[in-house]
Structure formats: C-alpha cells, structure tokens
Design a binder for these strands. Structure first.
Length: 802
RNA sequence: GCGCCUGUGGUGGAAUUGGCAGACACGCUGGAUUUAGGUUCCAGUCCGAAAGGGUGCAGGUUCAAGUCCUGUCAGGCGCACCA
C-alpha cells in the first residue's frame, strides 16, 4: 500500500466524525471511563507542540479503553476568557468575542487534524453565556454561604496607564507595556475563602491517586504549620503579637521585625522619632513587587524604629523593633520575633545590623558564625526553665507557660491565602452582585442569570482602575433586587480560574439549561477517572477546582468529595536547545509543519516516543524520521500477507507485546510501548511475511498510536468489520509470555565471567551446577574458597570466592 | 534565598525498581540495489589493542549500586523571603 498521509488522514477523520465513533453514550449500562485533559486557552499563536503531548497520551488511553468495552468520555472545550485576548482586542479594536471565535476555529482545525478522539458533540466554551450562567450561579452559592467577601487588597498599579496590572504584566518593577513605574495600590476586592477548606484540601489527598510530587507540592503550598502566637508588650504599652513556629527559642529573641505595612506604625507615628526614614522605607517597599522583595533577599534591608522597643515576655528584656520588607503583612501576624542564632534569615539580618546573637539550642558549631536550625538533635540552653529539654519538649513546655500567663497560645497557621477573585477587566464573567446604598451587596436572583457582558466601545480600564464596565452607565445603574431602590452593579469580573474550576462537570451534560449538569449525569460520570495536566497548574487550578468541588459537595450538588480520582502530569516539551520554547528564544516548533510534512500519525508517535512522558524532553527533529519510517513499515505489511494464525516462532513475541503495550499505556510508558511495537515489526519483517491474524493483532495494537494508518490497513487487508477504533483489544496468555529457557549471567565476585542457558524454573543448586561447569567461571574460582553463592531466578548467579 | 525536578554513548532515550548498563530509535561507517541522488535491504557502532574501565563529581552501605545513603557541582522549572 502506498502511504499518502494527507489523503488517508482526512478520509478517516471525516468517517469518524460522520459515524460519531467517539461519542460518549448518555444512557449506558457499560462501565464508564472519564478521561480529562486541561482544556486549552485558545491563544492567537495557535496550537503549541506541548498541547498534543498531553492530548495524544490520554487519547491513546481512551482509544484503548473503548476497545476494552468502556463507555469513554473524552471531551474538549475552550478556556477562553483572559488577558491576552483582551489586550489584543484593545490594541486592534476588535471585540474579544471575535478574537476568541477566530482563535477557537484555528485550534479546532489543528486538533482535528491530529485525529484526537475527542467527543466534539460536547464541546464547551467558558465565554458562552449558557456556560458562564453556571459559573455565576456557583459564585452566588459561595456568596450565600459566606465564602465570598470583600477586602482591601494591594494591587499592581501602573502610574502611566492608570490601570491595574496582573503580576505577569509587571516586569522588573515596571509596566510591561509602557515601561513606567508600577506601585502597589489598595483596592477593595472580592475574595473567596479557600482557607476555610485548607485542612480538608490536605487531608483528602489521602482519597486520591496523585503523583507524590503533586501531593507534596499542594501540601507545601497550603503549608500547615503548628506554632504559637506570643504577645510582646512595647515600651509604649501597646501589644505586638508575633507568630512563630519556634516558640522554644523565645529566650533567644534579640530583636523584632514587623512588616512595613504593619498598622502599629501609624498608631505610634508620634512616638517614633525617625518617622521620615520609616516613611521613605515604606514607600520603597510599596514600589516593590512581591517577587522583587524576594530577589533582593541576599542583601537584607530595614529601619530600626527610634523611640519604641518591645519587651520579651519571658525575661523582660527590652529589644529593638525593625521594619523590613522580608516580613510580609499577609502571613501570620505580620510581625516576627527574631532569633538570629537559630534562623538563617534572622542571622543574616543580625550580622548586617550588628545585633546580639544568643545561643539557646546547643548542638551546632559557633552560632556567631552560622545559625543552627536542626530541631531534631538540639538541647535547650540559656533558657531558664527550658534548659536541658529537647526542642519538641521545650515547645510544649513554653506553650503551657504562655497559656498559663496569658501571654500567648498554640496556633495553627497556613501559608495558603484567600483567593483574590476580582479583576478590573472586561473579558471575564460579570460578578452577579448589586450594590445598594440601603441593603449593601445583594446577590442577583438566580432567575436573572446569566448576567451577560454588555457591549462596550473600548476595553481599556478606566483611569480610576475600575473595569471598562463602569463606563456603561445604562448597565451599571439598576434596581436593588431586595428593596427596589436605585443601585449599581458590581463592575469587576471574575478571574480566568473561575470557568476552569468546574468545567469537567459541564462535559457530563453540556447542554442542560436547568442545572450545571443533571443529577443522573453527575452520578454516572463522577468522578473524573484520569486527569492529566501540567505541573504548573498543581497549586492554582488544581487546588481551586478541588476547593469548588468540595463546596459543591457540601451543598449537595455533586456526589463525590473529590473531583479527580487520578491525576498525572506530563513534562514540558523544550526547544531543540534544551530551553523552554518561546518566540524570543527563536526555538518554537509549529505542529502544523510536522503534520503537513510527515502526517498526524508520525507526529503522534514522535511526541510519545520523545522520552519519558512525565519528564521534560527537548525537541529532536532528527528522530521524527524514525517514526515516519515505522508508520511506512507498518503500512508495508499489508502487501506481505500470507496464511493465517500466529506462527509458532512469533507466538511468544506477540503475547509479550500485547502484555507490554497494554501495561505501558496504563502507566504512561508510551515510549517503551512504541519501542516494543518496533521490535515486533522487526521480528515480523525478518520472516519476510505476515499472517492475517498477526496483522490483525498488530493493527489493533497500533491503532491508539497511529489511528489513521491503522484504519487504512484494517480496511485494505479486510481484517474485520467496521472501524478498527471499535475493534476488540486483544488478550494475552501469561504462560506464553515466558520462554522455556533463559540466559543468565554468571558472576564471580560481582564481575561477569560467563553467560549460560538454563531452564527457566531451575533451582539454585541446579543453576550453580551448570555454572560451575564453565571453564570461564572455574578459571576464577579454582584454588579459592567459595564464601557465598547468590542466585536470582532468571537473572544471574554470583559466586563469592576468596 | 526557598522549593521541586533532571544529569546515562556522537544524539533522544531504555534498564521488570538493588540483579547482565546502553533496549528502541536517530546519526555515523562499510556493503548490496540504483546511471546518480533519494528510498530500501544487510553488517557494524559505549571507550580501550588487551587486561580492563565506564551512568556529572567525591565518599559510603551491599555478594551486587544508574537505582539506596552523605556531601558536592552543573542545568532546568516554579516561587508568596512563610518566620
């Protein structure tokens, strides 16, 4: 058969679509399998070669599961709200809706050209009012349950564009677009109380099958720590509360650091003698993004408050108070006690400002030179009643004492912060809230959903930092749903994360107007069986959607406490030079070029063969040819058919390959599955022909990887009825996967001296007897005493001789 | 600064989880086919003439280490200096 990838691929893509081969069945008594990939943001650049890596992987799994009789749901949609589309719209004066439509059309044709077995009848789009009606509905439920609230928060403010910037738009402290200075400005923002779920988000990781590195990263992000809050009195009689995870080191606290934004500074502005210096430092800190505060970490900065000191509650010592930007107002109490002897950052700071370093935990070298931070081995010293205790015991004891004297208490803290949910942007879901002078923030009645985005003239935010919606007075001015008086609509929109926090539920029943999905659909399809995505979404999207799902579970909308039973993560595809693909680095590969030149089947095989799916892999254009050659060799089998049945000399190879491919697909080892198929085809070619049965099995095994070529071979060689995509996955016989005899290595003192053939079930005595007959072995054992003999079945013998 | 990940032939990568390092490909070399190029097919290909030596580097545990432990170097990615 001549292999013309263009005609073959478009032929089968059309036939699949016409026959609805990949549609999930709505009413089915079959076992379900729900495979999910992270739906793409349809960017203007078109598909990236990274997208097909994830999509092809779960496509292979889905295709195999279909052939194994599962009712498979493998859906696709568009996460289409977002900043780049809005910025493109501002620049080119095109409605973001049009931009989105164009980008979606391009993405869709690119994806369809790859032959991914998505169920296109369930396609969704987060910017469709029929979809975001339910995003808004979920927000209303969160609001009604007290999980959405408003709070003053710092935002990035471009002094020239006069608008709020995303962190991404702030580059080195200046606005990405105009290069002007960016400052932090306080604005009232909608917040979601994800912290209320912090404990459950950690604990319920036990219920799911995620990779360890994903679980660890989520736990670190949520960051549960057990410590204490301790009250320090100041010389002015005020109370400064600090949070510490090391209350045991309290006697070693030699100074205190508070964040530059700490409210006590304003309160004490009359007492502080160097207020000018303090103000200057506050200004400088306000200009820094959080990331910059991180970058300057090496060189600690700070200002000592002149005129006020703190009093250590356990020993009455007066200690100086500093402000420094390495203490963040958002974590703990915004104030720390500094123990330079046992904390690296405090040590750096103390050295710079020449502050005393007092050792209170014995066990390290000289604490004047380096902080000793080991909690496991240290013993308390210089600490009055704590002396001689271990760190753990000292923590318990001091907390007891603090609680007794009312100067502090045990406290669990989380690094996790509440989710800032407002954006001063146009291209997002409107927040369905009305602000009434009498009734406050009033939720829109559910019957008025969706609250659609109005048409505006321009998409630029206003000079005051409000969203462009604020300019639409007709839309903004409304009546209060509660009292009927004049009121104004909320003009902030939701972040892109909103639509992606529940989209997997919508796929279950995408056209439902009465609920986000029907109860039956939710019950049948929940939870997602397998969710693959990038590591970069581990702490935001994955956590946000788990949070929303848990909330929906609590209000009895969804039937499972966790949305995803299993999560896997693919590695990034890097440029040929081993760096991340980006326009500026000039190492971007366009998937269209590969599909045009070599075909989708080659592209699919190549991306799966490129390396370990879970690790990053550099693009390597020279080895694409090998995958193309493999597809051609596979198609070449069609003209070599002779006879039927599996020939005895290939029987074990076939059984082994069926087993290996099946197992490797389930464990994401696509590269070795393909290698096994390549090895088998080499074996077949070595015999000069192929039987019909052999070709049938081989074609079925090939079909998840190279589905178009497989359909063509299936049809031409008349291997079965209908589509190979709906054929039955072959089974294997375990007993035929093992050979009667096996070659094992014979080592003497760990070095290989010979290899011998032995029956596969031979015992240690038998194997050793055979091994000792070898001259190559005896040459190394003669005249020595055999100390030890090790036999590993089917692998090796090791004779230890002295 | 912190966190996570990765270091194996000329190249991408395998290695049943502590048991024969280099599967499968790419590339290269030689040969066959071809007017030639391409394609295809056959043979070879970790280094070393050999003894041996080899998984970033230095130690350690073990009969046995790419795999486990300690230290260290390099690269990549992420970040909210998390007390």
């Amino acid at each position: 058969m001549k292999y013309d990838h263009k005609s073959i691929e478009s032929k089968w893509q059309k036939k699949w679509e016409e026959a609805g081969v990949f549609h999930a069945e709505s009413d089915s008594d079959k076992k379900k399998f729900y495979a999910l990939i992270e739906f793409p943001y349809p960017s203007g650049q078109g598909l990236h070669v990274g997208h097909p890596r994830s999509y092809t992987a779960l496509d292979i799994v889905s295709r195999k599961r279909r052939m194994q009789g599962y009712n498979v749901l493998y859906p696709i949609g568009w996460d289409a709200f977002g900043l780049p589309t809005e910025n493109y719209a501002i620049k080119n004066h095109v409605h973001p809706k049009i931009v989105t439509e164009n980008n979606v059309a391009r993405f869709k044709s690119q994806l369809q050209a790859l032959g991914i077995s998505f169920d296109w009848s369930r396609e969704i789009n987060t910017t469709d009012p029929k979809y975001y009606k339910w995003t808004q509905w979920i927000f209303l439920q969160l609001f009604k349950n007290g999980l959405a609230y408003k709070k003053e928060m710092a935002v990035n403010w471009c002094t020239s564009c006069k608008c709020v910037l995303a962190n991404e738009e702030v580059v080195n402290g200046v606005c990405e677009r105009c290069g002007s200075e960016v400052v932090r400005k306080v604005k009232s923002q909608w917040m979601l109380k994800i912290t209320a779920y912090a404990d459950r988000l950690i604990n319920d990781l036990d219920l799911v099958d995620y990779p360890d590195r994903v679980k660890a990263q989520q736990k670190n992000w949520i960051g549960r720590s057990t410590g204490a809050e301790v009250d320090f009195t100041t010389t002015t009689g005020d109370i400064l509360t600090v949070y510490t995870t090391r209350p045991d080191t309290l006697f070693g606290a030699t100074y205190m650091v508070i964040s530059p934004e700490h409210p006590i500074i304003e309160k004490l502005s009359d007492v502080i003698k160097n207020m000018d210096e303090v103000r200057a430092y506050q200004d400088a800190a306000a200009r820094k993004s959080d990331f910059e505060r991180t970058e300057v970490a090496k060189d600690k900065t700070g200002v000592r408050l002149d005129g006020v000191e703190a009093i250590n509650p356990v020993n009455g010592k007066q200690i100086p108070i500093f402000i420094s930007d390495y203490v963040l107002v958002s974590y703990g109490t915004g104030a720390i006690m500094a123990v330079p002897a046992h904390d690296t950052r405090d040590h750096d700071f103390a050295k710079k400002f020449d502050l005393p370093i007092i050792e209170v935990v014995k066990g390290g070298e000289n604490v004047q030179e380096e902080a000793f931070t080991d909690c496991a081995t240290g013993i308390l010293v210089n600490s009055d009643y704590l002396n001689g205790l271990s760190v753990d015991d000292a923590k318990k004891k001091i907390i007891e004492e603090l609680e007794k004297t009312g100067k502090g208490h045990a406290k669990v803290n989380f690094k996790l912060r509440d989710w800032v949910f407002s954006r001063q942007r146009y291209w997002g879901e409107p927040i369905p809230i009305v602000h009434c002078p009498c009734c406050g923030a009033v939720p829109l009645p559910e019957s008025e959903l969706p609250l659609e985005l109005p048409e505006v003239e321009s998409y630029e935010p206003t000079d005051t930092g409000e969203s462009p919606l604020a300019k639409m007075t007709d839309w903004v001015n409304t009546k209060c749903p509660k009292c009927g008086g004049d009121a104004k609509r909320e003009t902030d929109t939701m972040p892109q994360w909103a639509g992606s926090s529940w989209y997997f539920l919508r796929y279950m029943d995408p056209h439902n107007d009465n609920a986000l999905a029907s109860e039956e659909a939710l019950k049948y399809w929940s939870p997602v069986d397998w969710y693959n995505g990038g590591m970069e979404h581990t702490t935001l999207h994955l956590l946000y959607s788990r949070f929303w799902h848990k909330f929906l579970y609590d209000i009895k909308v969804v039937p499972t406490p966790e949305p995803y039973a299993k999560r896997t993560s693919h590695g990034m595809i890097l440029g040929e030079n081993g760096e991340k693909m980006s326009k500026s680095r000039g190492n971007v590969v366009n998937p269209d070029d590969i599909v045009n030149t070599y075909g989708a089947d080659t592209m699919r095989l190549f991306e799966m063969f490129i390396g370990d799916f879970e690790n990053a892999a550099p693009w390597n254009s020279s080895s694409i040819k090998g995958c193309r050659r493999f597809v051609e060799r596979f198609c070449g089998l069609e003209s070599m058919v002779k006879g039927d049945g599996i020939r005895p000399e290939l029987e074990s190879a076939f059984h082994k390959t069926i087993k290996k491919v099946g197992e490797d697909v389930e464990t994401l080892k696509f590269n070795t599955a393909i290698a096994a198929l390549m090895a088998l085809i080499n074996d077949i070619y070595a015999t000069g022909s192929v039987t019909k049965e052999e070709l049938k099995i081989f074609t079925i095994l090939m079909s998840p990887f190279a589905p178009h070529a497989a359909e063509e071979v299936w049809e031409l060689a008349k291997l079965g009825e209908g589509f190979v995509s709906r054929a039955e996955w072959p089974s294997y016989d375990e007993s035929k996967c093992v050979d009667a005899s096996v070659e094992i290595a014979v080592q003497v003192n760990g070095k290989i001296r010979d290899k011998i053939m032995v029956p596969v079930d031979i015992d240690q005595a038998g194997a050793l007897e055979l091994a000792k007959k070898s001259d190559k072995v005896s040459a190394f054992t003669d005249g020595k005493t055999i100390v030890k003999e090790i036999y590993v079945k089917g692998k090796l013998i090791n004779i230890v001789a002295k």
